[in-house]
Design a protein around this nucleic acid. Sequence first.
RNA 1: GCACCCGUAGCUCAGCUGGAUAGAGCGCUGCCCUCCGAAGGCAGAGGUCAGGGGUUCGAAUCCCUUCGGGUGCGCCA
Length: 581
Amino acid sequence: MNLFSDIRTLVISCLEAMVRTGVLPEGLDFAQVAVEPPRDAAHGDMATNAAMVLAKPAGQKPREIADALAALLQADPRIAAAEVAGPGFLNLRLAPSVWHGIIDAALGAGLGFGRSDMGQGLRVNVEFVSANPTGPMHVGHVRGAVVGDALCNLLAFAGYDVTREYYINDGGAQVDVLARSAYERYREAHGLSPEIAEGLYPGEYLIEVGEALKAEFGAQFLEQPESVWLEQVRNFATARMMVMIREDLAALGVTMDVYASEKALYGTGEIEAAIEQLRGQGLIYQGVLEPPKGKTPEDWEPREQTLFRSTAHGDDVDRPIMKSDGSWTYFAPDIAYHYNKIKRDFDLLIDIFGADHGGYVKRMKAAVSALSGGRVPLDIKLIQLVKLYKNGEPFKMSKRAGTFVTLRDVVEEVGADVTRFVMLTRKNDATLDFDFDKVLEQSKDNPVFYVQYANARAASVLRKARDLGLDISDAALAKAELAQLDHEAELALMRKLAEWPRIVELAARTQEPHRVAAYLSELAAEFHGLWNRGNDLPALRFVQEGDMATTAAKLALVRATGVAISAGLAILGVTPVEEMR
RNA sequence: GCACCCGUAGCUCAGCUGGAUAGAGCGCUGCCCUCCGAAGGCAGAGGUCAGGGGUUCGAAUCCCUUCGGGUGCGCCA
């Protein structure tokens, strides 16, 4: 149930009635008519811009339209008052019973409260994380993982059919480097001293891979040329890295549906097929690129390459797909991979990249546009940097200084729930400060604590009521006499609850899970506010000893709030707590 | 040089994809706990929405432009 779309439907039907009776001319477009919560609560419960939007096309004054619309709307039992204000806004005040309905909806739906069918089962593929399989996940990967996972939860909640996918970059030079690094650790496991040359991965996490290589292959690779062992060591090491990465992701609460391998695209003809598809459109040619202006590499020399005419689909320059030695660039398998996703019949593709990959957005979109004939949209979300702070001081990650921060470090220090929530408090294209101390602070300026505390308070009130002998099951609370909830402070909380289904759709449409976190903070503030009003006005306290009927109604509101918070936290992938420690 | 992102209160940031007097937290000022719901609450000060132009009944939001910050820019992934 979404009250705002319900009332919008009502407004539209009134407008259509006005067209039928000749009050409005025919042929008007109502698409721009919106029903929204007003910025200032004093203006009422909802506001519509209908009169202002239609004034010009209808050739009438906004206030005339608004007056006529108000008269019609007031005939509906849900509308308690409709007033024209300002330049032509129509402010609506709803009957209290309408708000009580939101409590029924929450109690009835439980964790499904706010679920939407907006997505209509459209198939969405979300590719995220896709960290190179050369080491454990570090803090730089965390935000992308959390945002991607929460976005998937959100889209699923809004009625999309979501596939979570991880693209394993196991086809390039970096996995050869991994193999050579692991080989040195393999030698180390045999009692030889490893030679970690410049450019190899020095991380100690490879020591156990060396041990495992020894257990698997014994001494057969010792003193052998690379050509003998490279492929087997590479396959072994990347497999181990992927196990580690899956465990890292699991520690964050992220589970992928599909792990797609870059290497698996080679030798199957998939890359060639994708390129041929482009060639058939005249988008592949041999050519020479201009040197980049202002920052010409010293060793620049004109070179003929195989290029993809990405400029035909909105890119700034054409892009090479083949190196001078005839092997594919990174871009070629990436094109094939996206072609593969298109052929798997997704309606929408979403890629989540680190901000440093911003330069690939246009070419990737160009490729998908060309390969799908413009049918499949590709949205790319760039995740900005996370700045780390400790004791209020920024600290930089450095392998040399030993301040390399892994995903595990973060999760072990502050917990997966706190990590996830904090990573979702900012929109993805803004940098985010992560202070190891502040995120654990138990105070009002820590949104994680504030939201969790609201949920715990709600649970605590219900526990108290249960100890007094009340039946606090949702079924029992649903029968409460909600008409008693008529105080302005209580109505304000109900209004906030009514926004939840709307927030879900808004966040899903804009693909911005941080809106859920922001909403939860607002809802928590409203709930804490009502609680605090109980200090001055005992009548607003939730448990009214000696008046079980009133208490039941108030508890229904409390429970509905807890349900909304829990449903929201579920989208963020955060466990709601019932008790503060 | 070009492309993308960002610029909102002293600080950190929201701002509903064009609506009414631009919001929150922190910080600051002033009140409020012998007890009953203060890990808090109430009130107040604080803004050229980076600057300029445009579209519109209406702009922080859309377009153009200037300035400032970040990221990226052929044979790395």
